[in-house]
Amino acid sequence: MKMPLVLGVVTLLLSFFTHAALIVVEDMGGTSALPYYRTLNLPTDAQSAKPMTLPAVRINPYGEPDMLPVKSDHLSPGKVENRVTNIPGLVPLFLVGDDDLSRRWLASRADLLREINAVGLVVNVQHISALISLRELGAGLEMVPASADDLALRMGLQHYPVLVTATGIEQ
């Protein structure tokens, strides 16, 4: 019992009395960035007579109309081939746009989408009135405007409307 205590104290004491010198791995040198800052006309010190002007602050919070239009360049309305996926834990999500195919699909699948608590991404929409219209069509579903280009590339999607679940991609 005494041996581990002694070893611990010795280790602690050695750590106080030993230290390594700083080793510079690489020093690439360089030039001062001051010429670049001078072109910005920033004050050089606290005594500067010229006050700093800050950009205007938006008083009203941003809302959904400020997020529009949304355009997903890698997605368009069209036929999607059903396929099996294995993405454990994925919350069911669906992609729709402001087009006739998406509206018909949403109207016919709304009950199922509500039943599985799917979240919708409105991937192509120009105006807030169109977004509101889609939400009315899918009453009770959470639907947010968002580009889905990254998701489309990762999932190999080219078209919507589509439902993506942990076990499959289907239209």
Rank of each mutant, 00 (worst) to 15 (best):
V96Y: 03
L141G: 01
I116R: 02
D149V: 00
S72I: 02
M67N: 08
L153E: 10
V125A: 05
P92D: 12
N82L: 09
L5S: 04
G168T: 11
L54C: 08
S32F: 00
V84R: 14
L137E: 00
P43L: 07
K71M: 04
V91W: 09
E81W: 06
Q126C: 09
D45M: 00
R104W: 04
R109D: 13
P43F: 09
S129I: 13
D45Q: 04
L22T: 00
L75G: 00
Q158F: 08
G63H: 14
D66N: 15
P35V: 04
S108T: 14
P77L: 03
R58C: 05
S133H: 13
D73H: 12
M155I: 03
G120Y: 07
L40K: 13
R114K: 08
R114Y: 12
L131P: 00
M67L: 15
R154D: 04
G29R: 13
Y62R: 02
A148S: 12
Y62T: 04
G8P: 05
A118T: 01
I59R: 15
K2C: 10
V57Q: 06
V123A: 03
Q47D: 14
M52S: 11
G97T: 04
A33Y: 10
T39L: 14
V6G: 03
K2L: 14
L131R: 08
I169Y: 06
L22I: 03
L131D: 03
A110V: 09
V6W: 06
E64F: 09
L141E: 09
L75V: 00
L5C: 02
T18N: 08
L75M: 01
Q158S: 14
F16A: 13
I169M: 12
I132K: 12
A20D: 06
L151R: 00
D73I: 12
S15M: 14
V10Q: 06
A152S: 10
A110K: 10
E81L: 13
V119I: 08
A166W: 05
S48F: 09
S147E: 04
D150G: 05
N41W: 09
V162C: 07
K50P: 09
D150K: 13
F94M: 11
A152P: 01
D98I: 03
L68T: 07
L5M: 09
V125C: 00
A107R: 10
L163E: 03
A20P: 03
L14I: 05
V10N: 02
L137W: 01
R135F: 02
S147A: 07
P4F: 04
T53M: 13
P35I: 11
L14Q: 10
L106V: 00
E115S: 15
P88E: 10
M3F: 11
P77N: 05
Q47T: 15
L121I: 04
G168W: 05
H74S: 14
L68P: 01
A166M: 13
